[in-house]
Structures are given as C-alpha cells and as structure tokens.
Simulated scan of single mutants.
Amino acid sequence: MRELTYYIASSLDGFIGDPHTGDGAFFEQLASGEYHRFMFDEFSDTLPTFAREHLGLEGKPLTRFDTVIQGRRSNQVAYDQGVTSPYAHLRQYVASRTLTEYPDPAVELIRDDLVGKVRELKAEEGGLGIYLCGGGDIAGQLIDEIDELIIKTYPFLVGSGIPMASAGFALRQYELSDCRTFDNGAIVATYRKIR
C-alpha cells in the first residue's frame, strides 16, 4: 500500500504561507549550504520540473514519490507564471471545487471525493509514495489520510497566515521518526502516523 506524505515548509508558529497571497516561497531564502545539499539529495522528487532541469537533476531517478496532489491555490503559483504542468516528472493531480477543467492533459483534476481518490491512489500496488504539496485546506480535508509528515521548520515567527492544516479540532497522534538540524536554523522533522 502506498502512503500519503505531507511535505511542507512551516514557520515556528505553524504557518505555511502568506495570509493574502498564500505563497510560502519566502521560507526558501534560508535554503543554502548543508541544508540545500540535503534537500536536493533527499527530496529532489519534490522540486518542480523546471527547477530539476535548471539544477541538472532531470535525469535523477525518483526515489520517494511518483505522484503529487496539489490544492488549486498551490498550483496557482506556477499557473500564474504560465506553467500548467509544474511536476511533469510525477503523475499530477490538482484538487479544486471551483475549476471545471484543467488546460493541461498531463494534470488530472479532482473535483469531488478527494478522500476517495486518495484512498484509490494509496491502494495501488507498487510505485513510490504520494506527495501532498499543500496547502492547508487540502491538508485539512486529507488529515486522516496522511501517513507521514515531513515538516521543514524555519526559524521565523510570522504571526498569521495559512495554517499547516485547516481541520476541525481533534488529536491525531504521530511519532517522531527522524529529525535533522542545520546550521541555518532549519529543522527537518519526520513524523509517522500512529495507527
């Protein structure tokens, strides 16, 4: 059975994006040195295709993920720059209640029953994992389907913004399975769902 991994950048106070634009790219200003090398070595599957090409990683085999699910607002960042297939090296899905069609045949639109579609993908035999690429609303909808959290915590307090997961209050327990600290102050922690 395949697993759904929510791989996300967060502030110390649990926010993943600007409250007005939804963009979380400001976190990446700390992506340098040892941290940068670790991210490219361990998580190159999660880089958009244009970044993989720019960094000479386009031929690197996939190691963690072969499928990506994005919310419409997360996808909109690339779409606004004219990129309709941001993760062409992966099987791509965009979840949206408002879009009626998607302009690129390489991307499948999920309009309803997001949880059912994720369960279908998780039940597939073989393959690598499923990368949940934000944002907080889609993570909230899929909170009970998330098997693993990989949280890149950056040493910033931002005060407000898009929360990591917009879900109703309930305790959902995870156990820490890995934690790395870096000289830029970032922490990458991996948590596994306790069944």
Score class of each variant (00 low, 15 high):
V115P: 04
S96A: 12
L62Y: 06
G71I: 01
E120K: 00
F65A: 03
M1F: 12
M39Y: 14
F50K: 11
E125S: 12
R97K: 14
S11K: 00
E120A: 09
G126D: 07
P61D: 06
R97A: 15
A123F: 01
P103K: 02
P19W: 10
E53K: 09
D18R: 00
E145D: 15
V77R: 05
L55Q: 05
A51H: 00
L4N: 10
A78K: 04
F26M: 06
E175C: 08
R72Y: 15
I138P: 15
I16C: 08
P19K: 02
Y131V: 03
Y174K: 04
M1K: 08
D104R: 03
G136S: 03
E175T: 11
R180E: 09
L142D: 12
I150G: 12
Y7S: 00
G159R: 05
E58P: 09
E145K: 09
V68D: 04
P103R: 04
S177D: 11
R2N: 01
I69F: 03
E124A: 05
G116I: 01
G185Y: 08
A139H: 02
D23N: 14
M39P: 03
Q76C: 08
D112G: 08
G161S: 15
S74G: 13
T63W: 04
Q81N: 14
L132V: 06
A106S: 12
E124Q: 13
K60L: 07
G129K: 03
E125A: 11
K152C: 14
S44Y: 03
R72W: 14
G140L: 12
G14I: 02
S166E: 15
F26E: 10
G24R: 03
P61I: 00
K60A: 10
H89R: 09
A170I: 07
V115S: 06
K60R: 14
R192C: 10
R192L: 07
E145N: 12
A9M: 03
G56Q: 09
G185C: 07
D137W: 06
R52E: 02
G17R: 03
S44V: 04
L90T: 09
E28P: 00
R119M: 04
T21K: 01
D45G: 03
G56P: 01
R72G: 15
P19M: 00
F169T: 15
K122N: 01
R37Y: 11
